[in-house]
Write a protein that binds this DNA or RNA. Structure first.
Lengths: 339, 339
DNA sequence: TTGTAGGCGTTATCAC
DNA sequence: GTGATAACGCCTACAA
């Protein structure tokens, strides 16, 4: 509406030159105290707000970091986003978020948007952009990849050991006496999903339990596929005493699917998820889940980018954040020891 | 890293003037076809991305809309954010999100950040900014308030009838035979929370059920206070056969609190929430809840801002989005009819 | 210590 | 049709 207040306006009001105003505002030491006061007073009175576009244009830096997230409504990405938000607080950098919707072309468009806005760096959460595109981006911009490990970009990837996490979950179930363990996978094209399946198989092999393909259902990381998995197994007559879902959302779906058939968790079937979302602590029953330090990953990503920005030469190796199992109440000891 | 490609670079590569490049890129009709081709080719080859700062500076419009949200991790705000995202898709406007954390000073800082970035309009979700500040903002910028009704700014507020919603929930429980209905309120300083309490009282009064202050527990809209409410009532020996929580998150907390005491929902106690979050559909049991059209509210907000931007004179009255009750499985008919 | 002037990348207004 | 050129708001040598 009303034209915004500019430095020129302040200069006029305080009866000084625009450079004096600029210097004062930027804390330059060499300004006469009285003028300084007059400028500050005028700026406050007029309600001056610096124009980031103009500053960015002349400084060549916008002090904003672009974050490509996949789904603003997903609890998974939100936890990471919250960490990023926290990680930048006080650094002067401002994260701005855009959505890729898990679609390669949306992601490209979103990144272009970010670059148009002159972001100083990029944080990419998951996604389907292929490695080549990521390499191209990495060559031009400070970049951090979260939840994804790309060959040649290890230094800039923040990932967790998904194989180990899945192994942890499956081994826990085995130790609790389960031998027929269903696994609901994530989207098969995603590395995370593949790694978790791998961890599941590994744990079975170590315990000398034969891998049964019937016990693996391909899900899509959404609640719906958890329900479908259960319905499918029940319809096929597949026997199982426990389920390991590749994320918590699918575990919730499975839980509901079981409830509808009057099968209790953990009384009849044990359940383990992956991600340890905030909601899982208060789920019913509280869900045993592989703890991904999502918030911390966001924080780390923010720090990593900051380092690349301030000290681009000093190569930094992102720390490997540990994966642990949050044991809660959704697993029960299996007395039946059904074959 | 590498300097970004500019119009100047394209001009050099295509051997034309920068004005011709600019015209071509902006789709001006009067450019010779061959030059046009050369420009487009060079732009593509060089990977040109326009500089939004520079465009914003000269055009006076940034084509971005600032959205002040409170908590990026809250499922409530995320649903609205998703609607906003969808509402702007295809309009050329780009929403950018910042967090206020439910704190007045953070909110002010966040809004200043947005203004620095020359947003063309503001969408404010909830928050604690006082009416005077909002009026000041509204005087200077296109503005839409979501989930909040401010005197004098009705035209720019998108709110729902919380009293009616709470009445709906409570009346449903009464019709299902419940007379001792606990209510977990939201943060007492928030208008929404007060309105929902009001709706609860109204429904009781209509049914000639005496209001019992013991049955009202002051929560804070987070899961934890749902657990506390249940613990409190149980410790006090307060009798109830149903609970109406002022939002779904507290309802989930209550459900867990009851589960811990081996009280079943809906077998022993019925439960109704407010917001109808996506998670409530797959909760256990699926939660009966007052449906807030969160996604639609976001969409509406986006549209409203767009209208203010394109036709500032034509006053628009935001439609009052209807509140309905999503009846699911967390309420059971109360045979006991306890006094 | 202060002011003037040039330039960041883009669009728009002029002449040609 | 096309190409200089003046803004847009700000910062920063450079001069004074």
């Amino acid at each position: 509406m009303n034209r915004n207040v500019t430095i020129k306006d302040i200069a006029k009001a305080a009866n000084v030159s625009i450079s004096t105003v600029s210097r004062t505002l930027n804390g330059s030491p060499i300004v006469a105290p009285d003028k300084q006061r007059r400028v500050m007073e005028a700026a406050a009175r007029l309600g001056y707000v610096p124009n980031a576009s103009a500053q960015g244009l002349v400084r060549g830096r916008s002090m904003t970091i672009g974050v490509l997230t996949q789904d603003i409504a997903s609890p998974f990405y939100n936890e990471v986003a919250r960490g990023i938000d926290a990680g930048f607080s006080g650094t002067g950098y401002q994260p701005i978020f855009v959505n890729g919707h898990w679609q390669s072309q949306d992601e490209s468009a979103a990144i272009t948007t970010l670059i148009r806005h002159q972001v100083d760096g990029l944080i990419i959460l998951g996604g389907r952009l292929d490695d080549e595109q990521l390499h191209k981006l990495a060559a031009r911009y400070p970049l951090v990849l979260v939840g994804r490990r790309v060959a040649g970009l290890e230094r800039r990837s923040l990932a967790v050991d998904n194989v180990h996490g899945a192994w942890l979950a499956t081994t826990h179930l085995i130790q609790m006496g389960h031998r027929r363990i269903g696994h609901i996978t994530g989207v098969a094209s995603q590395r995370d999903a593949l790694d978790r399946l791998e961890g599941y198989r590994l744990a079975l092999a170590e315990a000398n339990i034969a891998f049964d393909p019937k016990l693996v259902y391909e899900g899509d990381f959404n609640e719906g596929s958890g329900i479908q998995a259960v319905d499918h197994w029940l319809a096929q007559g597949t026997v199982f005493s426990a389920i390991f879902a590749a994320n918590d959302q699918m575990a919730f779906g499975a839980r509901l699917g079981l409830y509808r058939k009057d099968i209790r968790v953990p009384d009849d079937v044990s359940l383990v998820g992956f991600d340890d979302l905030p909601a899982s602590r208060i789920a019913l029953p509280p869900l045993t889940s592989v703890h991904q330090p999502l918030f911390e990953m966001g924080e780390q990503a923010a720090q990593l980018i900051s380092q690349q920005l301030t000290a681009p030469d000093r190569p930094t190796t992102p720390p490997l954040l540990p994966l642990t199992l949050s044991v809660r109440e959704s697993v029960r000891y299996n007395r039946a020891l059904a074959p």
